[in-house]
Amino acid sequence: MAKALFHKHQRVFVGPVGTWALIEQVKPHWVKDVEEPIRVTYDCGLGRDFTTDELSAEQADSVEAGHWRVLRAKNKWQTIEECGGHPFPGTFPVVVTEAMDWGGWRVPAAEYDRDPHRIEAQARLLANSPRLLEIAEHLAALAGEDGDLPPALSELSRRAETVLKDINTSPAKRGGAGQSRAA
């Protein structure tokens, strides 16, 4: 007998194709008078159904389990007096996406000088992105598990699915530089 190891909307690596995909549908194959399905296949939207041994789940060190955080880097080009109007004079935010204190996102000094409050807010948003992604995945999975959601929650779930598809689709599959925005 078979049991489903993956669930709808879960991100998996599809070995035969060599790409990441979201499971669109879990397909159990039943036999009359048997309590459990004899096998389970998964529709990942790639043209055919895949078996459990062809798929693998994300590892623990994926985006969802990241250690993203905002660190302060010293501003080498301006004195504290020159940037006295900044939220943290003499420093700028660096979003670190690795367990060590390196690797991640930085902003050019000229861009930070234009609107430091906006850049600080963007840094906080980037640092919290893995947690927001996890919330969106749970919200999208909720709609797949329970079809009787209130309309407002159903709409949020649909929007979360749209955002997840945008995150998990490579730019080449989107048709180049044009990116869609979630409604």
Rank of each mutant, 00 (worst) to 15 (best):
E81W: 08
E36Q: 15
H67V: 09
V96Q: 01
E134R: 02
R114A: 11
V63Q: 05
D53W: 10
E64Q: 12
R39D: 05
E36R: 15
I119L: 09
L5Y: 04
D49P: 00
S170Y: 10
A127D: 05
R131N: 06
D148G: 00
S157L: 10
V94Y: 11
L133E: 11
H9C: 06
R158D: 15
G144K: 05
F13K: 06
T79S: 15
V95K: 03
E36F: 11
W77A: 07
I167K: 08
Y42E: 03
G104K: 04
G15V: 04
A123P: 06
V94D: 07
G103A: 12
W77L: 13
A109Y: 12
A182Y: 00
R72M: 15
H67M: 07
V40C: 02
N168W: 15
L71Q: 05
A110N: 12
K165N: 13
E35S: 14
S129N: 06
H86C: 01
R69E: 09
F50N: 02
A127I: 06
K27W: 04
N128D: 14
F6G: 13
Q122Y: 09
G144D: 14
V14I: 01
L164H: 07
E111Y: 14
D49F: 04
E64D: 07
G15Q: 07
V31D: 00
A21L: 03
A4L: 01
T19I: 04
A182V: 13
V40N: 02
E155T: 07
I119T: 07
H86D: 15
R69K: 08
D113Y: 07
W30A: 02
E134M: 06
V70C: 02
V70H: 05
E54A: 02
G84I: 11
P37K: 00
E64Y: 12
K32Q: 08
R69H: 03
V12I: 09
A123C: 12
R69G: 13
L22T: 03
A152G: 09
A65P: 01
W30S: 04
W20M: 12
